[in-house]
């Protein structure tokens, strides 16, 4: 073996080893959370209120709260994100307005989640008098989710062949009819995948909901969108740092449910993508 070949062999081995170094902790963390949290899993854990200073009972209100927040986030970010992406792909000309939108998407994607929290607090909670509420929290998470939804919707729209648009327009359809009947139906899988992905991120976020919605302890379900709720990520933060002597399996159990929820959403998005890809005919 000559020098160059030997160097190649060494380099590739090192690269492979480094990659293992990245992967191993991921598996280790998953194993650790699952094995320690499994003991807490029970029907009771998922469906009961926390009791006795959150040292007993379950995580039901936090689970429901997170699900409500995800739904609320989707209600705002999905239409806004899809419409913006449609603008960028189907309507935008190369002008100042378009460039500003693109720049805004880039910057929204980089703003730290805690800054979203501050913004949501000062605008939705204080300025618009929503108070700390599902509404304020959902709006905050929605703005934060926009960049991912827009980027993936844009990609999905751009993947629809130009010829579909030409066919429709050449038959005298208007621009919106063309988008509605000849573009969107074929872009839906990509849009859904991106949306579910961004919602799964929103489900796991803590910083944006700290001051906009999350309740420390609230053992009943909300009655309106102006109520506060507990949320899984914040609950995990609370029981692992703010409340002493919570049994470890409860913390791990909460973490496990949170990871499971996020992973479940990811799996849903992967299944959706595969399902639509099979049906795709072009």
């Amino acid at each position: 073996m000559n020098g160059a070949k030997l160097r190649e062999k060494i380099a590739f081995t090192v690269l492979g080893f480094v990659t293992l170094l990245v992967i191993l902790p991921i598996l280790l963390i998953l194993y650790y959370v699952i094995s320690r949290g499994w003991g807490a899993m029970s029907w009771e854990f998922l469906t009961q209120n926390p009791r006795n200073g959150m040292k007993e009972g379950g995580i039901f209100p936090a689970l429901v709260g997170t699900i409500l927040l995800v739904i609320g986030t989707m209600a705002f970010s999905l239409p806004l994100g899809i419409l913006s992406a449609i603008y960028l792909v189907e309507y935008a000309r190369d002008n100042l307005f378009t460039r500003m939108i693109k720049l805004s998407v880039v910057n929204l994607s980089g703003i730290p989640s805690i800054v979203y929290g501050l913004f949501g607090f000062t605008v939705f909670v204080v300025f618009l008098h929503f108070g700390a509420s599902i509404l304020a929290g959902s709006l905050t998470l929605a703005i934060m989710s926009l960049p991912v939804i827009i980027t993936s919707t844009k990609e999905a729209l751009e993947a629809v062949p130009m010829s579909y648009r030409e066919i429709s327009l050449s038959l005298g359809a208007t621009r919106w009819q063309t988008i509605r009947y000849c573009v969107l139906p074929y872009a839906i899988p990509g849009i859904l995948t991106g949306t579910v992905l961004s919602l799964s991120r929103a489900a796991g976020e803590t910083a944006p909901i700290l001051f906009t919605v999350a309740a420390f302890y609230l053992p009943h379900l909300p009655r309106s969108v102006f109520d506060q709720v507990m949320a899984l990520p914040y609950h995990l933060y609370v029981i692992s740092t703010q409340v002493p002597n919570v049994p470890e399996k409860f913390s791990f159990g909460t973490g496990l449910v949170l990871i499971a929820l996020v992973c479940l959403m990811n799996v849903v998005s992967i299944v959706l993508r595969a399902h639509f890809r099979k049906k795709k005919q072009w």
Binding site: I29, Y32, V33, L197, S200, R201, A203, G204, E205, T206, P233, Y234, L236, Y237, S240, S251, G255, L258, I259, V262, C263, N266
Partner: peptide, 10 residues
């Protein structure tokens, strides 16, 4: 996709 609060807990 692992929430940061879980990593913080770890």
């Amino acid at each position: 996709s692992i929430p940061s609060v879980v990593l913080g807990f770890i």
